[in-house]
């Protein structure tokens, strides 16, 4: 979709509108001060143009006690305006970065040079992200190689996609349409081809899209994580019986785990991912570092399925099989 205005990109979320308002404030400051300086400079240049070769300027600084007051004025006023800008900008930044509770969870895997996206129901797509309008969408993002960056100008927010841990992007589109998705962090040869679209649809159209067309048999991230949990033999140790040598994972997500060195760690997506790739890094108290590493044997997308599965395990063991279906 071609943007409607030549100087303003599509505004497709409330956050985008906040950013534009903020920009308007900053811009008015820019115009005011640039014009002020430009006009003063031009007026002085003409008015005080040298009339004769031995003319000299008049030093008003030392003779005028008000000079120091003037210095103070033009230090303090800009400082005040800057602090307003800072506070406002910070407020908007928190809006940009803090997803509301209950946002639908999508997963994004970046690699040279494509975006792989997985919907909450397990459907996958490449370089395109279909979302329903008016619903908060949260993206959990990871890179398979270098640093990428998820950037949708219409939502006015960039977030880097790192190879080392998950980062989060969120938006709530307030209008339908197709919007540019760019890789915003230089990532190698075909960086400028790592582009796609975010397609915002009416909820009903989205449902239809999910149900219809070229369906790969979609199974949810949790369900495929469940399969992986068995396929990678995780269940031989992480199981609820007395001989298990590994912690039971039911209900651990979101809790604080105590480690062997008396520190605590929050069990979140990053901790689970790290514990699969590098199990010895942070071992839960009471267990030995006996788990083998899965580094190189598991892809980022498989990790996402496993993380989803473990996240879905509720404290009651019975919930396992049904979760997410």
């Amino acid at each position: 979709m071609i943007p409607s205005s030549p100087v303003l990109p599509d505004q497709a979320s409330d956050v985008a509108r906040s950013v534009d308002h903020l920009m308007l404030y900053a811009l008015s400051g820019l115009v005011f001060f640039s014009a002020l300086i430009a006009i003063l400079v031009l007026v002085f240049m003409v008015k005080y143009r040298r009339k004769s070769d031995d003319e000299v300027g008049i030093d008003i600084y030392e003779t005028n006690r008000k000079s120091h007051v003037l210095e103070l004025v033009w230090s303090v006023i800009p400082l005040g305006l800057l602090l307003i800008l800072f506070a406002w900008g910070t407020k908007v930044f928190f809006e940009q970065n803090r997803p509301p509770a209950g946002a639908a969870q999508y997963w994004v895997t970046g690699r040279q040079w494509m975006w792989k996206i997985q919907h909450p129901d397990g459907r996958r797509e490449i370089d395109e992200l279909h979302v329903p309008v008016g619903k908060a969408v949260q993206l959990r993002m990871i890179s398979e190689d270098v640093i990428h960056d998820f950037y949708v100008p219409a939502f006015r927010i960039h977030v880097d996609v790192l190879p080392s841990r998950y980062t989060t992007y969120w938006f709530k589109a307030n209008r339908t349409g197709s919007f540019h998705l760019f890789c915003g962090q230089y990532c190698g040869t075909e960086h400028s081809k790592m582009v796609g679209h975010v397609i915002v649809m009416e909820p009903r159209a989205y449902e239809a899209w999910l149900a219809g067309e070229k369906t790969s048999p979609s199974s949810s991230a949790v369900a495929s994580g469940d399969e992986l949990f068995v396929a990678k033999s995780c269940n031989t140790c992480h199981r609820p019986d007395s001989s298990a040598r590994a912690p039971i994972l039911n209900g651990v997500f979101g809790t604080q785990a105590s480690l062997n060195d008396d520190t605590k760690v929050l069990v979140n997506e990053d901790y689970i991912r790290e514990s699969i790739l590098n199990p010895a890094a942070k071992v839960v108290a009471g267990y030995q570092p006996v788990m083998p590493t899965f580094k190189g044997q598991i892809s980022e997308e498989e990790l996402i399925q496993l993380v989803n599965y473990i996240k879905s395990l509720k404290a009651a063991p019975a919930a396992t099989a049904e979760a997410g279906k």
Binding site: A26, F33, S34, L85, F86, W88, G89, V92, N97, H158
Partner: peptide, 23 residues
């Protein structure tokens, strides 16, 4: 420099930089 500096102020503003960063 005035224009460069004032646009620098915009970039120091979190909410704006999050949009125009690396553009």
């Amino acid at each position: 420099f005035t224009i460069g500096g004032l646009t620098g102020v915009m970039l120091a503003t979190l909410g704006i930089d999050a949009h125009v960063h690396d553009t």
